[in-house]
Design a protein around this nucleic acid. Structure first.
Lengths: 167, 167
DNA sequence: CTCAGTGCAAATAGTTTGCACTGAC
DNA sequence: GTCAGTGCAAACTATTTGCACTGAG
């Protein structure tokens, strides 16, 4: 699923692939087929995804670009460390989204269709920092998920309700 | 751990125990020893806790008030359904807090000591609803966790840094 | 006396790890 | 050639479930 409205990209010097290679080299880690397959895949297709969705989309066992489940998990953690992906939790499973080259943003989560919509709000950021100051808390980040029902699902419900009334 | 500043309670008609009994009866569920042990325990002691912390504090096997692990999990879900507890996720594990009789609030999460501090912000609520309107999203709730370092940990760090400099 | 609730052990889901082999450097 | 990375199977953690027994109604 690419169940998300994409925000504008932010210009960055290096492609995600190059950024990851740089990261690996700076840590003395090796640039392997699997790691390259995964950067390329993750940054060409997805917006929000979890480990299972990613594994499903990967070439099957036997293909030169196949990557095993443990390696997918290991590499997703590396992407987070490298600042390429951001991880958060949605009903108990890890969900990943692009971090590198994307502006900070928050999410609406539709509890009907499970879709995630992104939005940005500078005022929210300002409020967050003010709240930190008020409570003497040194803010380094935040996670906001607004839950509810998206426009399409609201309309779908309305349609089905009016269909009910017609009977 | 009761690692949280408590907000004022909001006046409610029934005690959590009575509210739960009412819930059980309305659903045709039985009022058992285990369920009563758990309401009483949870609403006398805790503020934020996870299943393991709760189980640790419960009387050991053999005690009349002992409750088994599966039943604790089952009952925590019932508390959430009954509107007594709210559940959220903190690094992959379910954390519970009182919902019944407590005003809606959000959290600071100290990444040093893992403490949760509560705060309320009506302006935040207003902003959330405005954002929903702007994006045509029917808002039913939200979860905001501001992460960073709490006052005590900031001070502890400062002290240890200055101790370093003295050497 | 009946059936929902319980405790136990076992299952599950998501993720991580130990280990012997493989391949990047 | 060496050692980090990989795939496999197995472990692990948090939570849920099937089943025979128990006790609330």
């Amino acid at each position: 699923m690419s169940n998300s409205e994409s925000l504008e990209r932010v210009p960055v010097a290096l492609s995600p692939r190059d950024r990851f290679v740089e990261f690996l080299q700076s840590k003395g880690m090796r640039v392997t087929q699997q790691r390259l397959s995964l950067v390329d895949h993750v940054f060409s297709r997805h917006e929000h995804f979890d480990a299972d969705q990613l594994i499903e989309q990967l070439p099957p066992s036997g293909d030169p670009n196949h990557v095993s489940r443990p390696t997918v998990y290991r590499t997703l953690n590396e992407f987070v460390d490298a600042g390429l992906l951001r991880r958060f939790n949605l009903n108990g499973r890890a969900v990943y989204e692009h971090d590198y080259g994307y502006p900070q943003h928050d999410h609406f989560h539709c509890t009907e269709c499970n879709k995630l919509l992104e939005f940005t709000s500078p005022e929210l950021l300002q409020m967050r920092d003010d709240l930190g100051k008020q409570h003497q808390f040194r803010v380094t980040g935040h996670r906001l998920i607004i839950s509810g029902i998206c426009q399409e699902c609201t309309q779908a419900k309305r349609r089905s309700r009016s269909r009910m009334n017609m009977i």
